[in-house]
Write a protein that binds this DNA or RNA. Structure first.
Lengths: 168, 168
DNA sequence: TATTGTTATACTCTATAACTATA
DNA sequence: TATAGTTATAGAGTATAACAATA
């Protein structure tokens, strides 16, 4: 358990991290914004999956996922096929052209990181990865355990949710 | 210098960090979005300053800073007074009501972090702070050293810039 | 002419809500 | 009735460009 001033400093670093995020976003091709890149990356890493699973991995609402996916499908980078076992579901899968796109993105990103973090040791990069993974885990299931809303405000999720979707 | 797969993993963590950011955003009062909170925090930490300095600390374009500041001024949380030494400039300063708002935000944020990171040691939180600060430094001056733009794309900043503003 | 700041416009990401189709 | 997914709409954040006032 850390002290309050430490939490304030951590919050400051979180806020400043936006600059890193934006810088990484600048190397994306104009037809492949961040949302599309995230979809390609997750499909590349985890293989074919349903929309709901992708929404969970992206940690955003399924409506958002649907929009990102539509953009990527339009460009032919993934295919959206029917799930024979449940006709409501759709299975997402990288196409060969999507794999090429992903490889290119991956190469470009690694290049930029290698450039900016040239004086970081392997161990230091690993440390940051571990801490951020743990951070994510401890904040994980954000949408299933909503924070106490500000007084006078309506909570964004009225009850415990076990899905990553808009309440009906 | 780390390996490529490590950079890809790091990128994945960066991407997933969005969920943490959004969760932290959910505890903000509806009249104080993230941009306003960042303005208050930086003025509280560094004291009165000019727009250009604030834009530099926020690491966003001055046009964005201007918008955030206008929102905060409208609510009476900061005052925007003329700089006697340069009539083009404006000095920003927290008002007493802004200080109260900031204290409240700070308290609420520390509370959420203390809750989510309850099993992190003081040392671990410090480690994350140090690594993120270094990350920010190594990505720092993003706008003054633009990354190589994608092939076939126009660079966002045509030349080396030494200010945080839209090229005229 | 160059600099400080503001405003108008456009784009991305996100959430909520309403809707369709299937279970 | 509940679930998977889509679409419409609204709000926040950001960047670029054009502009006004001052240096």
């Amino acid at each position: 358990m850390a002290e309050r001033t430490q939490y304030e400093e951590l919050m400051r670093q979180f806020s400043a991290f936006g600059a890193v995020r934006r810088e990484l976003g600048r190397i994306l091709p104009s037809d492949c914004p961040g949302g599309s890149a995230a979809v390609l990356t997750l499909l590349g890493r985890h293989g074919a999956m349903r929309m709901s699973r992708l929404a969970e991995l992206l940690a955003v609402d399924m409506s958002v996922t649907s929009r990102h996916v539509a953009h990527v499908v339009d460009r032919g980078w993934i295919e959206r096929s029917a799930d024979p076992s449940d006709k409501r579901s759709r299975i997402l899968r990288l196409t060969p052209s999507g794999q090429i796109r992903l490889d290119e993105l991956s190469r470009r990103t690694a290049q930029l990181l290698a450039d900016r973090l040239s004086d970081w040791s392997d161990e230091e990069v690993g440390q940051l990865i571990r801490l951020m993974a743990r951070l994510r885990a401890d904040f994980g299931d954000c949408r299933t355990h909503p924070a106490q809303p500000p007084p006078g405000e309506t909570p964004h999720t009225p009850e415990l949710e076990h899905t990553t979707r808009t309440p009906a």
